[in-house]
Structure formats: structure tokens, C-alpha cells
Design a protein around this nucleic acid. Structure first.
Lengths: 343, 343
DNA sequence: CAACGTCATGTTTGCGTTAACATCGCAGGT
DNA sequence: ACCTGCGATGTTAACGCAAACATGACGTTG
């Protein structure tokens, strides 16, 4: 074993070590460390110098134990691979950091009930003051899971608004805007490529799509189901390309819209000349699709901010019962939509 | 204020509470909790029942304090918005979980030296046994940062292999494969859209591109610089589309390739008829580009796995000095490359 | 000039856990 | 019957920190 900078056989530098070197009590070191007042400048400098020399860094486990709070938020999700999730997590981490909270990531490998339960058990033992769940909360219920007492929860992508606070994009209004935009352009009706069945976001977008059509008295075409991936959108697009009545498509996310675009292109159906298409998310790439995609912009940063805000309110025991916060969306018009071709 | 399930005024359930209810000592509760042997089955059941009834969950701060380890890995990065980062982080989280480690995410808002320093200071105070840095480590050096002793580090996207262990995709070989593929198809030379200057990955891809051309005695065209985004690729593509000699392009990532694709399409330059293009990353969407993109596949999962492996080795004080692990890449041939047009 | 207040600093204590050691009871050998 | 040994369980102490309280050295004021 090398002697150099391997971990000391004993423990790391503690306040007592610093105190000894600086010639003060460890309480004074604590005061300097936490920035508490009542330490005269000269003493403070000595302590700081001693900290520097020894390479002291506070032991947050001890601090957490003493204070009874971890200043950490757990985030439980299935995957970071979707744009929405990774951007929401990034926003959560940013706002949490602003508030002095760290983020612990708990990805659930498989979206089964067991998987969720396992992660939650781990989270229960983990050093977190609260949890943000980015998925359909009914997967939790199905495992008849009792949340550990003392741990607060905020949920994204779920309709559990009566039981936990929920923060989410206003899926329904976004979908309505997309469909209405296509109807306003003069299309007879709008076809739809939805997301996976277990996604509540996909479910709500589809519901709003159907309702908007029905309210205008339009024909409701059969739904094509994808799994959020561009490949699944391509497969749906293949079917849609063969549908002569189809002049307008609402894809439940931009990636599936990309696949649809390719399928239409390969079948010689021009966009937006023959077929118009609207996506959902406004991922950065969508403005470089061929053609640039008209889509519904989600404000992931705002979703993240509201999550953290809501959770911290709970952690601090401020009044905020269950309820749902909806973050508005906005239709971004680009070049993938136009009036239908003359018959 | 609701009375229901708000946090108790006192503290959470502790081992002492469980011990009292079960009629045993708290040490026995500890033994049950940690699965240590030497507890007779009947006692174990009683303790388990008491835990259940009180909703006991171990306090990991106390455990960490006692044990001197947090079983947590910190991940410091600029953003989750790039495919590479989010997929690497996801892989890291997965493998870490397998080893019983949690992941704490530390995003650095702005890639300045101050930003990095701030995050690292926070990390120093954070409950982590080791850190994975996903960015160019020289940004750390510039802030003349001394790593806190006792905290182990592994780095991604950096050439600091002489000072810290580095795990990375074999950028150079990937770029070489891309360029060689285009040369093999008969192209005179290969034009290049690079990434941002501060990215070491971009730098290495560009170096390998240049070296491969020079080794074949080809003309080295001027470099077009992007920032990884599709929009920046589009701008580069606009310039490239006006370049009549340009028949082959190597874009440093798939998103910029997407932008180039659109620029070429808008200028009536066919892909791969007139111009061939190769990307880098193999993001899931790239198989749905128009046309599906030939690209260099990175194995992000493997990068994540090696990071965790290397870091845990260090944490456990197993022999593993500084050094670089290169994860191989593979060229994925799709429809965006072909021989150059006849002159 | 004595009593008191104020401010800097020190001492004590306990947060929840687990390692190390102590104890207790019982089975088996003499 | 008595000791031995072992397996199950209990007791003690310490991890590092910060709140609460204690001390002590001043300066101020009636």
C-alpha cells in the first residue's frame, strides 16, 4: 500500500483537529464553519488558516444527524433518456442547488411494480428530506406502498392530484392547441400518434385530442400507438402514409413526429403540402427537422422549479395541501403545417 | 394546517423506539437491521414486527457518521441536455445502484471557473465518497483547485489521464473510422463541423479527422465550428452547401449532422447523392433522419460502467493509478453516405 | 467604585448508529 | 453437582457536529 495520499488509517480531519491547531475550542470552529456571528475577526482568520492547512471539510453526515435534516431531495424516475425527464431533472437540480439542496437520483431500471418498490425502499433508507416522483404514481399504488412517514412527495406525470401535490405541463391544453391549429388551417380532421399506454401524459394528450375533435363534430380516426421513439413514429407514419384521407397528424412528441416525417417523405407525401404535422415538446432539434416542426413547447424549467418550490414548502411545513399545478404550453408555428391540399 | 401526516414535532422513529416496543436492546435491532447473524428467529420476527408497526427506517446520516462512508457518488457536470451526458449519467446511476451506491447530481450552471469551483466546494461538503467529473478537467485546474483529500475522482471528457483516472469513448478512433469510411467511398477529402472549443471530445475528434486526412495526403479544408446544437449545424451546413468541392462531411455529433442535413436539403444538395455525411454518437433519432444517418456509435453504458468500476476501486483502496480507459466505438452505416457523384 | 451588561469564547450534551466488550443462560463433559 | 464453552443478547462508547448553557474579561453607569 502506498503511503502518499491514500486515506488516513484514522478518520478525516475533524473540527477538533482544526480547533487544536488554531488554539480555540471546536465550538468556535463550528461558528466559523457555519458563518455564525460572534467570532472576532482575528480568531476567525486563525481558524480559517487552520482549516486551510489541514484541508478541513465539514462532515455532512454529522451535521445532518445533529440537525435532523439532510438538505437533499430524491428524484425517482424510469429513465433520463427522454428529453422531458432529463430536462426536468436538470431544472430540479438547478433550483434545488439555489436553495442549498442536493439531488439524489434514483433511476428505476424496469418500470414494474417490484422495480418501483425496490427503489422506494432504497429511498426510504436514503438521506433525503423529500422525494419527487417523475412517473405515473399508480404504479406505486399497485404495489400498495406506504410512503415512509416524514418524507414529503411531489409527483410529475400523474393524476394523483387528490393525494399528492402534482406539478405538470398542461398536457390537455397543449394538445388542444395543436389540434385546433390544424382544424383552423382547414383540415377535415386530425390523426393521432400517441405514446405508451402507461404514460399519463400520453393519455391526457390523446383525451384532449379526441375531445377537441368531438367538440368540433369531426370524425375521430383510429389512434396509432408509439413508444415515444422516432422508430415507433416511423412505423405509425408508414400506416398513415397509406391513408389517403389523412392530411393532418398530431404526434404526441417530437421524436415520433420525426419518424412520421421520414415515413411520409419516403412515400412521397409532402409536408406540409400534402400532410401537416404537429409535434409536442419542442426539443431543440425540432427546428432543424425537414421541414422545421410546428410543435407544442413545454416549459420543463418551470415544471422543475414548481416541483422544488412545492416540495420545499412541504418540507418546511408551510401550508400547501394536495393539488395540481399546471404549467402552460405554447404552440410554436414552424413549417410543417399548412392548409390541406385542394381536393 | 392539517393535523394528519405532517412531520412529527419530535424526531423520527429510531432504533430505541423499535427496541422498546419489541422488548429488546437497540443493539439487537441494529443486528436485525443490518442482517447480522446471531439473532434467533423468534426475536428477529418480533423486531421486524415492531419496525413494521412503527414505520421505522434507518437513519443513514447516523449510519454514515458511524461507518465513515456515505455510499454515495457525486457526479459533476455542466448539463444533462446533451445525449451523451444524460445517457452516461443514467448508466452511472444504474451501475452505482447495483453496487449499493446512490448518485448525487451537481450540475454547474455556467461553465466558468467560478461555477466549477462553487460546485466543487459544495461537493466537498457533500456526503460523497467519490466524484465523477464529466467535463474537461482543466477548467478545474484553472481555478487552482485542490481536491479535498479522501475524495476520489474519475474524469470523463478530459485528457487528464496523467493525474486522474480517465474513462472515455475512443474519440480518435471513432473519428478516424468516420473519415476513413468516407475516403474509402472515394471522396477526395472530408469537410468537418466541430464542436465547442472547450470540449475535449470535440478537440480530439477534430485532431483525428485532420490526422487521418494528412496520413492519406489529402487536402485539409477549413473547420466549421458549431456548439453541438442542430441550429449551429444548420449554420455550418449553409456555408458548406455553397462549397462546390464539398462532397463529404464529418459532423462531430448527430445533432449538428441533422442541421447540416437540413441546410443541404434546402439548397437542393442531395444526400447521399451529392454529399455524404457522417455523424457521431448514434442518438436514437439518427436512424429516422432524412436520410437515416451513418454515424459513429458511442457506448455510453460502458463508459458509465467503467467510471463506477474505477471509482469504487479507488474508494476501496484497490490498486488503480491514474490512467485512461478507452471505450471502443463502432461505425453504423446507414443511408447518408455513398460514393461521390461522377464529376 | 461596585454592580451589571455585553460580547467572545469554552464546556456539555445528545443526535442514531454500530463495534467492541460484557453478561447471561444453558448444554455437555467430568 | 460443577465447571466449560458457546451462542444469544445487553451495555458502553464513540463517530463529528451544533444548540444550549456556562464562563470570563471587559466597559459602562448610577
Amino acid at each position: 500500500m502506498t503511503a502518499g495520499r491514500t486515506r488516513r488509517p484514522g478518520r478525516a480531519v475533524s473540527m477538533a483537529d482544526v480547533a487544536r491547531l488554531a488554539g480555540v475550542s471546536s465550538q468556535t470552529v463550528s461558528r466559523v464553519s457555519t458563518g455564525h456571528p460572534g467570532v472576532v475577526e482575528s480568531t476567525r482568520m486563525q481558524v480559517l488558516a487552520a482549516m486551510q492547512e489541514l484541508g478541513y471539510r465539514p462532515n455532512s453526515a454529522a451535521r445532518a444527524l445533529k440537525l435532523g435534516e439532510f438538505r437533499t431531495i430524491g428524484v425517482i424516475l424510469f429513465t433520463l433518456a427522454t428529453t422531458g425527464n432529463s430536462r426536468t431533472v436538470e431544472a430540479i437540480a438547478g433550483y434545488a442547488a439555489q436553495e442549498g439542496y442536493a439531488i439524489t437520483l434514483i433511476p428505476v431500471a424496469v418500470p414494474t411494480q417490484d422495480g418501483v418498490l425496490g427503489a422506494f425502499t432504497r429511498l426510504g433508507e436514503l438521506a433525503v428530506d423529500g422525494i419527487i416522483v417523475i412517473m405515473e404514481v399508480h404504479l406505486l399504488d399497485a404495489a400498495n406502498l406506504t410512503l415512509p412517514p416524514g418524507v414529503q412527495v411531489v409527483v410529475v406525470d400523474s393524476d394523483a392530484g387528490d393525494r399528492y401535490p402534482v406539478v405538470d405541463t398542461d398536457q390537455a391544453d397543449g394538445a388542444r392547441q395543436a389540434v385546433q391549429h390544424l382544424l383552423d388551417l382547414g383540415h377535415e380532421t386530425v390523426w393521432h400518434v400517441t405514446g405508451p399506454a402507461e404514460s399519463f401524459a400520453a393519455e391526457r394528450r390523446t383525451q384532449a385530442w379526441r375531445r377537441t375533435l368531438l367538440e368540433s363534430g369531426r370524425f375521430v380516426p383510429p389512434v396509432h400507438r408509439g413508444d415515444w421513439s422516432a422508430d415507433s413514429g416511423y412505423r405509425a407514419g408508414l400506416a398513415l402514409a397509406r391513408e389517403p384521407r389523412c392530411t393532418a397528424i398530431f404526434a404526441a412528441n417530437d421524436q415520433m413526429a420525426l419518424g412520421v416525417l421520414r415515413a411520409l417523405h419516403e412515400h412521397g407525401r409532402g409536408v406540409p403540402g400534402d400532410v401537416s404535422i404537429v409535434g409536442f415538446d419542442d426539443i431543440p432539434d425540432s427546428s432543424s427537422f425537414i421541414p422545421p416542426l410546428t410543435t407544442v413547447r413545454q416549459d420543463f424549467a418551470e415544471v422543475g422549479r414548481r416541483c422544488v418550490q412545492g416540495l420545499l414548502r412541504q418540507i418546511r411545513n408551510e401550508p400547501a395541501g394536495p393539488g395540481t399545478v399546471l404549467v402552460p404550453t405554447r404552440l410554436v408555428r414552424r413549417d410543417s403545417t399548412a392548409p390541406p391540399p385542394a381536393p
